[in-house]
Design a protein around this nucleic acid. Structure first.
Lengths: 248, 248
DNA sequence: AAACTTAGTGTAAAAAATACACTTTGAAAA
DNA sequence: TTTTCAAAGTGTATTTTTTACACTAAGTTT
């Protein structure tokens, strides 16, 4: 990912992706170990977000899609820009510099990065682990340590954006399989929003929205009453979307 | 603005600012005519958002502040990043190319721009019109025509962000004088949100928030009962900010 | 003093949010 | 086959919020 096409890349602009996944109880972030053992002989255990310099004729969104595809094999996943990060010292830590010197054609170039967050269904991801998977790790978002570059800042912003988004639109479905139980959905909301939500009220409210559709499928292989599975009907949501205005 | 410091600028990264103002009934955007008559002999009537390449050791926010200061003389104004815009063809229109060739040291460089929106109190702005003012224009945001580069796209995104922001936080105060009537505030909300809002309900709701404080000042020079003026108490808002979670 | 213009106010009805606890169902174990 | 276990699934009453709606009050101008 890193050394390929280096001559066609723009040395000043990169894209970094925060890939969120949900394992049923915790919100996870996909992290990479910066120095893949076999690419390089520098010993650098730093974890980072997946990212790369952009190619010369590539739009920013395309660059993000490319990086995500190379990493997960998933083509159409939910992707949203977080914003640009451009502090002049964002690449100034000692280990960051060492890595840049080993890897980049222009290690001293100033780089602005554009952050993205992606939502993936972890099950899909497991289907085609890429060559990177060996050095990739799903990490509980609350337990992420110090990352390379300014990636902690990007991650924080991503979480913020995700919360804000979920507050306004039902993006949570992107993190779940096509058929999910209301319990799964509730857990997801609780986890992302970091708050308790009443089960009965949640059900009522969700079902009333009209974009959660009952299916004929049920949970399987559980040692208790299996829950009915539902699916998300995007069209219904799109209809409803003309939200009422509500101000502070 | 444009020719100054050109050798210290990064040729690949610029900042563009959408400056919003409110004249009491309409939301305005500050536009510049791209070719200042006395700088250049190219005849280019294209209107654009104020913007510039960033300086080598300047953070993105700093660059936006600098541009805003140079233009308006205002130092501390509300500023928020919109995001990065990087389509490979964003500078490809014929007039855009002509302008770049006339102005830029590296006219063919790919440029990613980072958009910002700023909220200013138009009264403050009037106090110190800069040298640019002659070629600057406050334009009703609904009546902006075709701008240079991809600036229409940036403007659209800015309006979107502003609405979203206002939906969640009382940023409207940034557009008003320190003392304002509830009527002014209501007009502002109606205009930005593009919707009718009931006067009595608005008053009640606003006053109940606790961050609108009654002052002893009244409107002056109006041919009718003068309205009481209020002020915004940021601290109160900050206290309240731990908003309840509400989902779709 | 009359006319004009905007400021400023209250109530009732509907909708939404909240708090709260027991029964049902299927699988597994006894 | 019965019992146990674990999560699924359900309803109601109260409070809060939202909405719709029209007249009086207070200055200024004529």
């Amino acid at each position: 990912m890193i050394t390929k096409f280096q001559s066609q890349t723009n040395p000043n602009i990169s894209v970094d992706c925060v890939i969120f996944g949900f394992d049923g109880s915790n919100l996870k972030v996909l992290l990479l170990q910066r120095a893949g053992r076999d690419n390089l002989d520098i010993d650098d255990p730093t974890m980072v977000l997946p990212g790369d310099l952009i190619l010369d004729y590539e739009d920013l969104d395309e660059a993000a899609s490319r990086i995500l595809f190379e990493l997960t094999g998933i083509k159409d996943l939910y992707l949203e820009q977080i914003g640009a990060f451009g502090h002049p010292d964002r690449l100034a830590k000692a280990l960051d510099r060492k890595w840049l010197n080993a890897i980049r054609l222009e290690p001293n170039a100033r780089v602005i990065t554009v952050g993205y967050f992606a939502l993936v269904n972890v099950d899909d991801y497991k289907l085609r682990p890429s060559g990177f998977a060996k050095f990739a790790e799903w990490k509980d978002f609350r337990e992420v340590g110090e990352l390379g570059f300014d990636h902690n800042e990007i991650l924080d912003k991503a979480i913020d954006k995700l919360r804000n988004k979920l507050y306004r639109e039902p993006v949570g479905f992107e993190l779940l399989p096509a058929h999910f139980s209301l319990h799964q959905l509730l857990s997801l909301y609780k986890e992302i929003m970091n708050s308790d939500i009443d089960k009965r009220n949640f059900r009522r409210k969700m079902l009333k929205t009209g974009f959660i559709q009952e299916t004929e499928h049920f949970q399987a292989g559980v040692p208790h009453k299996p829950a009915r599975l539902y699916s998300f009907v995007r069209e219904e949501f799109d209809n409803i979307k003309q939200q009422k205005f509500k101000f502070y």
